[in-house]
Design a protein around this nucleic acid. Structure first.
Lengths: 126, 126
DNA sequence: CCTCCTTTTAGAATTGTTCTAAAAAGAGTA
DNA sequence: TACTCTTTTTAGAACAATTCTAAAAGGAGG
């Protein structure tokens, strides 16, 4: 059994959902203090390949890893930078139906204000 | 009049559509041999801000610049790496209508096999 | 204990982009 | 032409997330 791989998966599963590599690294390091970032990347790739997690690439260069491997959409909060799940129905079907070219796959990131920030104190009430 | 900015815009407008910064750099350099990559980025940002062109960020880290500033979708050919336009109807409206969260904007890149590659010699006919 | 294969480590390398500070270029005024 | 002010350009360093490389460590089976 691969302990460190399991620990990385555990950390992700115990999180609210979507973490970046460096945050995973920081958390796993508490249990394995001499772990190195490359190990995190190694195992995240392996876990992604094996279908345990999902790798979400963003245009900002900071990728997220999702504990839920089944396909669904994501949104980035423009206020706090958190990645959250978005429900868009069967978007893949819609895209394949409407597109004038074959759609093998796609990368989509919505930009939103997440519920936490919307309820928060960042509204311009003077 | 800003000559180099105009030259960069010209190069983009004379292209088939979507270029990366380093390709623009290579082309403009033929006319201004001592130009520097930072100047290309400076002017691409300025042209984007002024609405002349469009900046398309990809998850692969290699951004494209589009001579057509009006909103439309894009697809990346998995075979040749070219970025092409895609017609998906009014996707923005569809997303806003279906999403369970506010949609301020979005980044979408389809993955496809472009017509050129589809007609080409890369089909596995033995 | 040996051998083989996988995982991990340490640190350098990569890549596209951004930043910084100094030099150069223009525009307007006298 | 000379002076000032602002914008643009240059050169090269810095950055940040990720990937790579080669060596070391670990574990399983015989």
């Amino acid at each position: 059994m691969v302990q460190k791989r399991a620990a990385i998966l555990e950390v992700l599963r115990n999180s609210q959902g979507h973490l970046q590599a460096d945050e995973i690294f920081r958390r796993v390091k508490q249990y394995y203090p001499n772990m190195v970032l490359a190990t995190v990347y190694n195992n995240l790739h392996a876990l992604t390949n094996d279908g345990y997690i999902r790798h979400i690439k963003t245009a900002t260069g900071a990728d997220f890893y999702d504990k839920t491997p089944t396909p669904h959409e994501h949104a980035l909060c423009v206020n706090c930078g958190k990645l959250i799940d978005a429900d868009l129905g069967d978007l893949a079907a819609h895209l394949r139906e409407r597109a004038d070219i074959p759609v093998l796959s796609y990368d989509l990131i919505l930009h939103t204000v997440c519920p936490d920030c919307d309820n928060g104190c960042d509204q311009n009430n003077t």
